[in-house]
Design a protein around this nucleic acid. Structure first.
Lengths: 327, 327
DNA sequence: GGAAGGACTACAAACGTTTGCAAGAGAACT
DNA sequence: AGTTCTCTTGCAAACGTTTGTAGTCCTTCC
């Protein structure tokens, strides 16, 4: 029912190949003919069938975007930026949610492989070897984790964690708790590594609590442990956990920031909406989405880009961090 | 480079059509042959090329999902549910964000039309006639707005608004402000209509403030107007505006709920995270996503489903609503 | 005035599938 | 033993494009 290239050819009295070139190589067709063809196409409401085009060119002009959990406020800004950026370059985006499941993740990459020119893998739960294997089927760009031999975009959370610890140190805290994230997370290891170094440098005692699920509940559940740890400040794996922790602390009668300072990571929209507003490490998620799309599309040209892009983070001081109780 | 049906045919010593049938009509091929073919396919890592299949069957097994703003916390749960539900039925989902722009919306539907079996249009900003025209190019299901002649899924916000007004009435409020949403929104009209009726029935004065942009800023900006309106309670178009309003009221020295009760709509994840926690009307967004997918896929079979599904809403009472100040 | 080149267009094969049709082999019926 | 039926498979056309090759007609040059 929808107009095909053949309909346009018939109506405008030229061969299909001429119609095709009118769209894909305009300089090869006579201006007068081109005008006539465009006119007929317009008239018929013709739009090239991208699937058919993909069959022969091998380029679908689609990309896949796989995230662990769309409902996690970290991802929507990334998705939004990536989608918009891709669309600006005439690419459409498949979005899929793995529910934090590595198996689903692999299945999705495979299922999408033939329909896209590449896949953005955000915060993957798969092993490096799994990811490397998949990258033979379809170009991959990994976000939030470096994978040897593959292009990746990561946030400089090490810097962020250092800034956070230094900030707390300057406020006078001498004992900080680190509320860790999920076990397999590269980001989690980075934070831990960097916070440990920064704490040692600042003469600060660091208590590590975790691993924990990276959710509000995960933070909430550790409130008592945190309260009894002797620490006067906490650096949490992400905002979600920080918020859960604040809530949990309230419940056990510890007020923030008077008795306990809290610093989150990510600067999600959430952090400006809680009371007290959350001091947090801002990670440039939108920029990460755009950068990942750029890498993926560049990927096509030269054979195998291996670059690792590291985006700077910064500390955003709000109301959840303050001086330790004078006692 | 990736294995095609022809490679599998060659290796397993049968014709391509037999391989094809092994996957798309297994009962037509001899069990022994089928086993052998499947084995070879497995060996070669063969996966049918869905684009090529779509070319001939006319069914892409993809659906489009167009939302106004991915970063609006209303949408992620809907997207997540729709994507997961669709994947369970072997469909993949294109997600696109229109930035609240009707022009982008139309362009997206057209661009996606050939690549999908149908499009879910969530909270569209286009006119009904525009939508109807587009529905001739590609099956559409509209979410959050009824469009004559098209299948749609809507929330019973009228019921929700009534419950909210009654709740406030029972608490003793006699003057309520309605903080309206965007001009073109059907949901906004419904809320307004229903709140007006409920207020009259309860002997409550209703002041309508708006239209406003459906964002945190939109709520924030009206804080002073609300404070001066004489109302002791507010029903906001959505949670985002309610949260913004609470923040704005704090700034001008009005405390919630002591001096002003606030009720939101949507019950986004947000509403449990703010202080005070938000009393709000829960809309079943995940269910809406699933229902819309179901309608879209059913749509294919019988020619034109016109059904309108209305999902019930309910009031969730939390901490932002209370008795009016005794004065 | 013939050759050489340029601009434009048509032809046809290809991309990876699906599917209607036909053919062959047995099995089951009459 | 002939007919019909079922099961299984192969053949080939089709889906809507792109693109290499070749052809036509003009210009331009020597």
């Amino acid at each position: 029912m929808p107009a095909t290239i053949r309909d346009v050819a018939k109506v405008s009295g030229v061969h299909v190949s001429t119609v095709s070139r009118t769209f894909s190589a305009p300089h090869l067709v006579n201006p007068a003919t081109r005008a006539r063809v465009l006119d007929c196409a317009e008239q018929l409401g013709y739009r090239p069938n991208r699937a058919a085009r993909a069959l022969i060119t091998g380029r679908t002009h689609n990309i896949g975007l796989i995230v662990a959990d769309i409902a996690n406020p970290f991802f929507p800004p990334l998705i939004k930026a990536a989608e918009s950026h891709a669309r600006g370059r005439d690419y459409h985006v498949f979005v899929a949610d793995t529910n934090e499941d590595a198996g689903v993740e692999e299945e999705l990459v495979l299922a999408l492989a033939k329909q896209v020119d590449g896949v953005l893998l955000c915060s993957p739960r798969m092993s490096n070897t799994q990811i490397e294997r998949l990258s033979r089927d379809v170009p991959l760009v990994v976000v939030n984790r470096p994978v040897p031999g593959l292009p990746a975009v990561v946030m400089d959370v090490a810097q962020g964690a250092r800034l956070a610890v230094e900030h707390l140190g300057e406020l006078g805290h001498t004992h900080i708790a680190l509320l860790g994230g999920p076990r397999g997370s590269w980001t989690n290891r980075e934070i831990r590594r960097s916070a440990t170094i920064a704490a040692r440098a600042g003469g600060i005692e660091l208590t590590i609590i975790g691993p924990n699920p990276p959710t509000e509940e995960g933070g909430w559940a550790q409130a008592e442990t945190v309260a009894r740890s002797g620490a006067t400040a906490v650096l949490a794996y992400n905002d979600l956990m920080a918020v859960g922790l604040i809530e949990g602390l309230e419940k056990v009668g510890v007020s923030v920031p008077a008795q306990m300072s809290i610093v989150g990571i990510d600067d999600t929209a959430l952090s400006r909406r809680t009371r007290p507003m959350l001091t947090t490490v801002a990670t440039p998620t939108a920029a990460a989405g755009r950068a990942a799309v750029d890498m993926l599309l560049a990927h096509g040209d030269d054979r195998r880009t291996t670059a690792l892009i590291t985006l700077a983070t910064e500390l955003v001081v709000r109301d959840s961090s303050g001086r330790p109780p004078s006692q």
